[in-house]
Write a protein that binds this DNA or RNA. Structure first.
Lengths: 191, 191
DNA sequence: AAGCTAACAGACGGGTCTGTCTACCAACAA
DNA sequence: TTGTTGGTAGACAGACCCGTCTGTTAGCTT
């Protein structure tokens, strides 16, 4: 048998990523992932002994992707941390424009997962990491209260992201970015 | 047979409200609603021919409740529309403090419902109504761009609400309210 | 050539979910 | 008295879903 271009594990993850994001992990049966990724059931359960393991791997992939996009958008805004805080909202704009955009994978998944579960804990952890990163940026931007500014900006970000599950209005990211600019300028006395 | 204090329909709705909000409509089987409300299956299906009808009734109840709380919080802030725009964030604070708080019922439900479904449409409609109400308030507050300010404030609101599904940090509502104040003052030239 | 590894194919059990259906019962109104 | 209304109780079909299991096949390594 000729080896497929993608190893089985990657094919499973790609399919899970696509389906889980579109319909939510609970909305996608294991059998569907198997059928769409063209993989044997035993293979899937070898790589991911429980469905939740696949969900966790999905969340990890989204986590890396989204953090990368946030960092890239921030960097593209220049060297000034204050500009970077505003610039990271370009990642929101890109996300909203993307085909099949369906809101924040973490909020969506957290909404359908049990409070004490591993899956739920992973979503909380993701938001914690993002908040820590933004807080550091706010501190370097000279904010009077970096934690507070960071929370305000992540609230805007989460609001913009979660709105995507309702309607993907094209103007939303720009509106959020403008609000971010106002908040950053109000919170950084040096500017 | 002696009639129970609550008619069957109300008992079903009360139970559905509690369970659907806690676990999401998809996470609660019809059988569970029946068992917890102490009602016969035929009775439930008589009042709500499909489960989605029950979900819609649940959303309507949340819609009325939440809008009422928003209006009450705004009114409590005084007569000035600008103050009311900030004051409505007290409704967020109350919601976050409530036992069993679990984020925004509409975002949570939208995340697990199909894009074209009745249920999804109802969630979109709710957000539209809220936005329209806030926009009117922003207009009366003399905002230079009422639609823009309203969108910014609802983004903050949705961000604060949806964060509740991850962690109910007690400081979040105050932080959001402070951001709202900054945004309102920046957007209303007359102030 | 032999053995090992990774994958494929698919049946199956036990469970859950929605929605329908039959049968029965109690109160009230004509 | 006789329907009618609104309810209870629970069986049932058909679909789906998770996870386990048996058996097969292809390629690589030794």
């Amino acid at each position: 048998m000729t080896r497929p271009a993608q190893p089985a594990r990657e094919r499973i993850l790609d399919t899970a990523f696509r389906l889980f994001y579109a319909r939510g992990p609970r909305g996608v049966g294991v059998d569907t992932v198997i059928a769409e990724s063209g993989v044997a059931k035993a293979t899937l359960y070898k790589h991911f002994p429980r469905k939740d393991d696949l969900v966790l791997a999905y969340l990890d992939r989204v986590d890396q992707t989204w953090l990368g996009q946030l960092r890239a958008a921030a960097s593209a805004a220049g060297d000034d941390p204050g500009d970077q805080l505003v610039g990271m909202f370009d990642a929101l704009a890109s996300a909203c424009r993307r085909e099949g955009y369906h809101g924040c994978a973490f909020i969506n998944t957290a909404a359908e997962s049990e409070a004490g579960s591993d899956v739920h804990a992973r979503t909380v952890e993701h938001k914690r990491v993002v908040l820590a990163w933004v807080t550091d940026l706010a501190r370097r931007a000279g904010a009077a209260d970096p934690a507070r500014l960071a929370r305000q900006l992540t609230l805007l970000l989460d609001g913009g992201l979660s709105a995507g599950v309702l309607d993907a209005e094209p103007g939303t990211p720009d509106t959020a970015k403008a609000a971010a600019r106002v908040l950053v300028e109000a919170a950084c006395p040096a500017r």
